[in-house]
């Protein structure tokens, strides 16, 4: 099966074993043994929870599993990029080799391949760079597409995350690494240079909205990987709603997380990655 088509997820959460956890600036890369999982499509995610001590943190949380992009596949392994922003991510960051991890997935609709003769511009902000790593792997495996990577971070410690992808141009809010300023300034330069491109973006909501607006003005197709608070990840709870163009809501977990930017009037404040 091609890397752009997804097989259904197993119909139960599975207990996986942690192989290790690596530091990447303020981020952690969690590596788990995962032999049986169907090959994910770039942009798909999994719902994760630790096998032990999931609960009993601050305010007795976490209780529900948490959504994470599948950042990379290696033979028999899945990798996740984590940022500690609360009790769930903190507990996952504490995992050690040999620990158990509950995983449900791969879930959701992933990225679509670029149109013929369009280059791919990958635009990632903060921990939102995760799904772009597996996307870069997939695009480069096909070798037919020219890939440009633009990554933005708040500060130097976060900018170390850029090492998850290769060949990235980096922007930081504080100017400590790369371009001092907004990621969308880099995107604007790229589109000015050559606008026959397909943009793939994941990151905080204000960044996604700026990317959406810029691509809409210049008539450039954009695929946005959205986020939302999720209880289930498979369409059961209707908790992950974001407003869609023309009224009503999309469920990020089953209609996304990757959404064609034209399906949105704007990216709502709750639909982005932690910033």
């Amino acid at each position: 099966m091609s890397q752009w088509s997804a097989a259904p997820a197993p119909f139960a959460r599975r207990l996986l074993t942690v192989l290790g956890i690596d530091e990447l600036g303020v981020y952690r890369v969690l590596r788990v043994a995962d032999v049986e999982t169907p090959e994910p499509r770039p942009g798909q995610f999994a719902m994760l929870a630790t096998a032990e001590r999931w609960g009993g943190g601050e305010d007795e949380r976490p209780y529900l599993p948490r959504a994470f992009s599948i950042a990379r596949r290696r033979i028999g392994e899945s990798h996740f990029l984590l940022e500690d922003v609360g009790p769930g991510t903190r507990r996952l960051c504490e995992l050690r080799e040999g620990d158990g991890l509950w995983a449900l997935g791969p879930l959701g609709r992933g990225f679509q391949p670029p149109r013929p003769r369009h280059r791919a511009i990958l635009v990632g902000g903060g921990v939102g760079i995760a799904p772009l790593a597996i996307l870069q792997d997939a695009l480069e495996a096909e070798a037919a597409t020219d890939v440009t990577v633009l990554l933005g971070f708040r500060d130097g410690a976060r900018a170390q995350g850029a090492a998850l992808l290769h060949g990235a141009r980096v922007a930081t809010d504080d100017g400590s690494v790369g371009h001092h300023g907004l990621l969308t300034e880099l995107l604007s330069q790229e589109l000015y240079r050559d606008s026959r491109a397909e943009v793939y973006a994941c990151g905080p909501a204000p960044m996604l909205e700026a990317v959406r607006a810029m691509c809409a003005t210049r008539d450039v197709p954009a695929q946005l990987a959205l986020e939302a608070g999720m209880a289930c990840g498979f369409g059961a709870c209707y908790g992950c709603a974001v407003p869609k163009r023309g009224g009503g809501y999309l469920r990020v977990c089953v209609d996304g997380p990757v959404i064609d930017a034209r399906e949105l009037d704007c990216v709502s404040e709750h639909a982005g990655a932690p910033s």
Binding site: P62, L64, G229, G239, A241, P243, Y249
Partner: peptide, 23 residues
């Protein structure tokens, strides 16, 4: 019915508060 505006979920101790709004 379209359902309620986001956010629709809040994680409580050992549970979940939802305001899905019956979409």
């Amino acid at each position: 019915r379209a359902g309620n505006p986001a956010p629709r979920l809040w994680e409580a101790p050992g549970g979940l508060i939802n305001s899905i709004g019956l979409p």
